[in-house]
Design a protein around this nucleic acid. Structure first.
Lengths: 200, 200
DNA sequence: TCATTTGATTATTGTCACAGTATTCAATAC
DNA sequence: GTATTGAATACTGTGACAATAATCAAATGA
């Protein structure tokens, strides 16, 4: 321990942290939120931050399941007319019975389920935690929402083509589209046929 | 226009705004976010506010009863890891089985389906043509999305309470909320537990 | 009598400001 | 040539402030 005056360091022109080197690469601002929502928003921001990191696409899918052995289960489906009382199977109001598997699974051998992670598809009405029904036998046409693998990352995006190149469009203006380069391979795992969201 | 000193008003003990009268009914705090995420978070907060707005004690709501019909099923469920190839039932990725009916139908005796018409619930991610899974055995608590009959009209709205009165909130700023008057009867047909949307 | 007006009081809310931290630069030391 | 160092500058979390909103009860006026 000395009290000598150091001779290194000092004023330098052009020194200082460079702009855009923060967590998000863009300006920030403060927003007032209810305290109970803070952890939720922080989780969202973590995904938001990761999504903006160049060259990396965090997985958007959590759970995969296949529809191999569906069983029938019929439940009442009511029509659009307003019944005078609560509808019962004997009423004319009942339009049909509905089997969810029958309704949602075209072909049990080519259908599976995945769970959505992240907020990149909110513009298409697909939210974090939604369950998707995917049919891998369907052709990935432009405009369809597909499950795809790009650079080893599993994502859910809307398929489009620009200048002959496939583009995986995020349906949220704050997430970047994925424009495939010649060196990148697009592996399609199927077309999303339905979305399911649990509310309770 | 006079300059006389008014004699009304003045200091009062116990005056002042009451705690918990804000948008969320709870304390708030500031959080720093990237500017591009601000509209996304604000949208989220709007829904969050509707979800968490504390209601008063619920009035008498008629929960009607009836329905039936059974059967069951089981389907394979795959693990959370991203598989290197397409998952199949023979893979180690299969972790359990998923049954769509089991996943979406808590009690087949109290569950039915309805199809949405109109755009009044788009703010809650419920769109025209969506299929709703409704459980009429669940209690219509504030914040839940319910199927209700008001003045003979069958509607899907979010339930809330203002000044002790039930309010059916449309989740679309272009639709009006339904504030129930004393002469009006609110007949609840159940709580929406899931939404299903077919894309193809 | 009773509904309305009024100013003080207090909570909420959007925004700014500040201190502490992180990053970068280039001269100096080794 | 490489590592160290202090200054410079941006980022980040939190506190503070002013403007707004809500509430109360006395005074007012019909």
């Amino acid at each position: 321990m000395t009290s000598e005056k150091p001779t290194r360091g000092g004023s330098r022109p052009g020194a200082g942290r460079k702009p855009g080197t923060g967590l998000y690469g863009e300006p920030t601002q403060t927003l007032r939120l209810p305290v109970s929502s803070v952890p939720v928003v922080k989780d969202f921001l973590a995904a938001y931050q990761a999504r903006h990191r160049p060259g990396r696409f965090p997985p958007a899918i959590d759970v995969c399941a296949s529809a191999q052995n569906p069983v029938r289960m019929k439940l009442p489906l009511f029509g659009t007319r307003v019944p005078a009382g609560f509808p019962s199977p004997a009423d004319d109001y009942m339009e049909a019975t509905l089997d969810l598997n029958e309704y949602l699974v075209q072909d049990r051998h080519t259908t599976y389920f995945v769970k959505v992670k992240g907020h990149s598809m909110t513009g298409a009405g697909i939210f974090d935690g939604d369950m998707l029904v995917v049919n891998r036998a369907l052709e990935p046409l432009p405009g369809k929402i597909i499950v795809a693998v790009v650079d080893g990352e599993l994502t859910v995006k809307r398929l489009a083509f620009e200048n002959g190149r496939p583009v995986l469009q995020a349906q949220n203006p704050h997430f970047k589209d994925i424009v495939l380069k010649d060196t990148q391979e697009l592996q399609c795992w199927g077309v999303v046929t339905s979305t399911i969201r649990k509310l309770v």
